[in-house]
């Protein structure tokens, strides 16, 4: 920084520097750049928290080669929505492994956030959340996917998720009998 800068200009520089410190720039696999609140990124993603703490954040865009721009936009959107909200007790305690922690019900805005996604976008977002170690976002996305399964027959689930039945008729019957105890009436 030059010492002979005008006061206004110096103020501007300071503001820019301050803004830089508050956000992190992330780069998707297809080269798009996204700004995310540093505080929220560190709070919501163990991977980003590690990169920020370890100084491996690139001001010109930290490469996240595994994440496409649509998924990264959703990740960043999710973080930034959290940035302005006071962390609830549920979020603070979410540092426990998501494999063992009791599930926290998604909040209303989180439900809406995932409800508007296409199935492809939801798939990419759950993978991105997993890659970035975002346990709360994993909670929310896995909850949404589980809602898409509940109360449906295997055929209906296949239809929802566009999956082909790769069992033979005999195998299907065998497994059905194995699991007969789980069905009320089949």
């Amino acid at each position: 920084m030059e010492v002979d800068k005008g006061k206004g200009e110096a103020e501007e520089t300071r503001k820019v520097a301050e803004a830089d410190r508050d956000t992190v720039t992330l780069k998707s696999s297809d080269g798009k750049l996204f700004e995310v609140s540093k505080e929220a990124a560190a709070r919501l993603s163990t991977v980003l928290a590690g990169m920020i703490a370890g100084g491996s954040i690139d001001d010109n865009g930290t490469d996240l080669k595994q994440i496409g721009s649509e998924a990264l936009e959703n990740v960043v959107d999710y973080c930034n929505k959290h940035a302005n909200s006071i962390p609830s007790a549920a979020l603070i305690s979410s540092s426990i492994s998501f494999n063992t922690a009791p599930f926290k019900e998604p909040e209303e805005w989180e439900r809406k956030f995932v409800d508007r996604l296409s199935h492809d976008a939801l798939f990419d977002l759950v993978e991105a959340a997993n890659f970035l170690g975002m346990e709360r976002l994993l909670d929310v996305t896995c909850h949404k996917i589980s809602e898409m399964m509940k109360g449906k027959s295997p055929d209906q689930i296949r239809e929802v998720f566009n999956i082909k039945n790769d069992y033979t008729k005999e195998e299907l019957e065998e497994i059905r009998q194995e699991l007969a105890w789980a069905f009320y009436d089949d």
Binding site: N99, F103, K150, I157, K164, D166, Y184
Partner: peptide
């Protein structure tokens, strides 16, 4: 992680029968 959020055994069994 998804299946653990499906509480009903019949629903879980249906998931196992998908593929």
């Amino acid at each position: 992680s998804v299946i653990r959020r499906v509480p009903c055994e019949a629903d879980r069994a249906s998931v196992a029968l998908v593929c």
